[in-house]
């Protein structure tokens, strides 16, 4: 059963998958890791992004990634509005975060059922010239439908990393994560900084959605699998460390791909949640915890 070729191929597929998981997890890494807002609805927004890309692709034949990038402003605004609602209803009143969690759970449910009503339970997929092809390196095949999402995901991660560490606003976001009160003393408004960060996190969902539907067909209930993956990656990556998120995403991708190859694809999903449960139980501060 075990062969080197199979192993190498599974490993490569895992690394590629990991790059894509990073793109999905970025939103959670920022909203949950940095802002302490458990945005359970992020994966369903990724789903929403995927369906918007699907619509553009099937109606106008638009390139999926281009469509994903085009919709980022919409998701930015949606994120800002969602944070505004969250802030006004929960954060400002100092209400316990648990009610916020229920709020996001409700949003998740509404968006998921909305997608279900609009698009049904059928699997949807996008078409582009390059999706069927693959790149061959010796015995290892790198299909473009995985390679492009991986490159795009890693690029998105790098962009966000540069933004957070190099720009004024990025540093303000890291500042609000460390000490919102001190930020206020510096004359900045934590609410506006957090809203910007949340909106950015939400904007990544549009691109991640484009990558998701490129990798394989989607259906509305799929977002639940990604809740586990994204939170596992965020916790393992050390709650908001962008570099850690990438490393954790790659590890999870490899673990899932190896499990799927050698034990069957049905077990793939259990890996992420198993990793999450283990990480939470044994080392909640993650591998790269602050």
């Amino acid at each position: 059963m075990f062969s080197l070729d199979l192993f190498l191929n599974a490993l490569a597929a895992g690394v590629l998958l990991g790059g894509f998981y990073a793109a999905v997890s970025l939103g959670i890494a920022v909203s949950f890791g940095l802002l302490d807002i458990a945005n359970l609805a992020h994966p369903v927004f990724v789903m929403f992004g995927a369906y918007l890309v699907y619509t553009m692709n099937s109606r106008f034949g638009m390139d999926p990634i281009l469509a994903g990038v085009l919709f980022t402003p919409l998701f930015f605004v949606l994120g800002a509005l969602l944070y505004q609602l969250y802030y006004a209803s929960f954060e400002r009143k100092g209400a316990e975060s648990l009610r916020g969690l229920v709020f996001f759970f409700g949003i998740l449910f509404i968006v998921e059922v909305g997608l279900l009503l609009q698009f049904g339970v059928d699997y949807r997929l996008v078409e582009a010239r390059y999706i069927g092809e693959s790149l061959h390196l010796g015995p290892v095949g790198l299909p473009f439908r995985l390679l492009i999402p991986c490159v795009a995901g890693v690029s998105l991660t790098a962009l966000l990393y540069l933004f957070l560490s190099r720009t004024f606003y990025g540093r303000a976001i890291q500042g609000v994560a460390q000490d919102a009160f001190a930020l206020r003393l510096m004359g900045a408004n934590p609410f506006k900084v957090k809203r910007l960060a949340f909106a950015l996190a939400s904007a990544t969902a549009s691109v991640a959605g484009a990558l998701l539907i490129m990798i394989g067909p989607v259906e509305p209930a799929m977002n639940r699998e990604y809740i586990g993956r994204a939170f596992a990656v965020t916790v393992l990556g050390g709650m908001g460390s962008i570099g850690g998120t990438l490393v954790a995403a790659l590890m999870l991708g490899v673990a899932e791909s190896l499990t799927a190859t050698f034990y069957g694809p049905a077990w793939g999903v259990a890996v992420s949640f198993g990793v999450l449960l283990l990480a939470l139980a044994v080392r909640p501060s993650g591998l790269f915890g602050r």
Partner: peptide, 28 residues
């Protein structure tokens, strides 16, 4: 016993994870 280590949001996410892991077990 999980609540020994996990409070608040983390507990909730763990319970969500539990449901998915168990579902995978029964699927298989």
């Amino acid at each position: 016993y999980l609540t020994l280590r996990l409070r608040g949001v983390f507990f909730s996410i763990a319970t969500l994870a539990l449901a998915v892991v168990l579902q995978t077990l029964f699927v298989n």
